[in-house]
Structure formats: structure tokens, C-alpha cells
Design a protein around this nucleic acid. Structure first.
Lengths: 130, 130
DNA sequence: CTTTACGTTTACGTTCACGTAAACTACCCC
DNA sequence: GGGGTAGTTTACGTGAACGTAAACGTAAAG
């Protein structure tokens, strides 16, 4: 039996560059539920992964309650649940949203390319005409 | 001379499914500056495009002030400005941010794929063992 | 002439995601 | 036992992005 590594709140706070306040806030919203050792919060590797997912979700612009929904997907007990079909449809939903997101990004990237081309064109003109 | 089409606030509100209040708010923050006909706001095709860009920016999780920065990129007067190098570096900055964004999306999509595979595996087991 | 639709400004309210401060505990160090 | 470090709860504050309500203008429709 390998004793699993655990983390303090400031360990995670340092590693991911979020305040302890923020991490406690996520707990308040039931996105993470660390164990306690007396009063102190103890985070497992699983908690750490959840925090990573929370932060990525935030970067993607999801609200905390949306992120909670996503985390709940991972928590579905696939051994016992008769809700596998439902889970599949939720996954598909998420995938669609992300695909739309990607399209927005690609559109914006294409426009930045355009802008850059124009910009370089003007720079080139300058070089020619002095 | 082709007289360009214009739009009322509710035209745009309907087309893009945002409230008029929101559009006026963007104006407050100087992201759009429509003309006036007396009191009424008149939006040109250019204003309409700016609104599209605002909404896309929002979908991408940018704040209004970040979006304003981006819109200002498009407004740079490349004929007169000696800041083309600066513009190029800002474009590169934006591109990097979007690329990082894309990586987050791809990671999430990959994890959803994993989850779906597990899910289908369990469904298959059910079908076998009844 | 009044209702209806569409527009305006001004101003206060709300939700989300925390920040900040106060007041406390617990442990380690010397 | 005084100080430092790390943690805790409780509670009020804050900025962003609007929502909502009040009170009003204007112009066409019935």
C-alpha cells in the first residue's frame, strides 16, 4: 500500500497561482471537498486534478456552476448508474459547445492574420517609399 | 453613391439576441459609437460588425475592456501611424492567448473522448451481462 | 385623441467571483 | 512566553456586466 501524497491549501495555491481564498470559495460552491485533519484541509491527488479542471474551465470562460456540472460528469458512477445514455448526451452537448468555441477562435485567428498581412504590407510600402 | 443601410438599436438587438440595454452599455464603455438622428441611435454596417466582434469576444471570455483593446487594433490608422511594429506585437500577443485557449479546448475535448469511451465500454458490458 | 411601438436618460439593484480585514487557533522556534 | 508561519471562520467590500424601473419624447395607427 503506497501512501498517497497530499497537499495543503497553500501547496495548491502556490502551484496553480490562485489565492487560498479562491480555493475555499470553490469548496463553498461544492466544487472540491477536501478531507479535514482537525480543522485543516487536506487535498488528495484527486482534489488537485479537480482544481486543475476548475481552473481550465475558468480559462475557457465557464461559470463555476457550469464547471460543477462538468465535474459531475466525471463523477457519474458508471457501475451503478442507469444514466449512461444521459451522460453520453451531456458529453455530446459539452463537445458541441467547445466546437463552437473553437470556431470562434479560428475566425478570430483568421482575422488577426488578415490584419497582420495588411500591417506588413504597409510596413513594406514604408521601406520602399521611405 | 449607394446609400448604406443603417440599423436601429432594436434591429441589432433582435438580430444578435442581446438586449438594447447591453448595446447601450457597450456604447457607455466606448466600444461602439453610433451616430444620432436627433436622440435616436443610428448604427452603420461598421457598427454592426463591431457588435459582432464584441459578442464573439465575449463568447471567448474576454472582458469588455480587453475587447476594446482588440477593436482598437482594427482601428489603427496604418497610413499615418508609426506604430506598426507595436501593432504587430499586439497581434502576436492576441494570437498567443488564443492558441493557449485552443490548447485548453483540445485537452478538454480529449478528456471528453476518454469519458465517452469509458461510458460506451460500460454500456457494452451491460448489453453482454444483461 | 389616445393607444401602441420604439426610443431616450437617470438611477438604483443584482449576480458572480472573489478580495480584504478581523479575530481566532495551533504549532514550531528560541 | 514572545514571535513567526500557516491555517481557520465570519462578514463586509468590490468590480464587471448588465437588469429593472421610472419618467419622459415621438410618431404612426386606429
Amino acid at each position: 500500500m503506497t501512501t498517497e501524497r497530499t497537499y495543503s491549501i497553500s501547496d495548491l495555491s502556490r502551484e496553480f497561482d490562485v489565492t487560498a481564498r479562491a480555493i475555499r470559495f470553490y469548496e463553498d460552491k461544492t466544487l472540491i471537498e477536501p478531507m479535514r485533519e482537525g480543522q485543516r484541509r487536506i487535498y488528495t491527488a484527486r482534489d488537485r486534478v479537480r482544481l486543475m479542471l476548475i481552473l481550465r474551465g475558468k480559462r475557457l470562460g465557464f461559470s463555476l456552476s457550469e464547471i460543477k456540472d462538468i465535474l459531475d460528469l466525471y463523477d457519474t458512477d458508471m457501475g451503478e448508474s442507469r444514466q449512461l445514455e444521459l451522460l453520453l448526451s451531456k458529453i455530446a452537448e459539452r463537445r458541441d459547445a467547445l466546437a463552437a468555441h473553437r470556431r470562434d477562435i479560428d475566425l478570430t485567428l483568421a482575422e488577426l492574420d488578415d490584419l497582420e498581412r495588411q500591417c506588413r504590407g504597409h510596413l513594406h510600402d514604408r521601406a520602399r517609399t521611405g
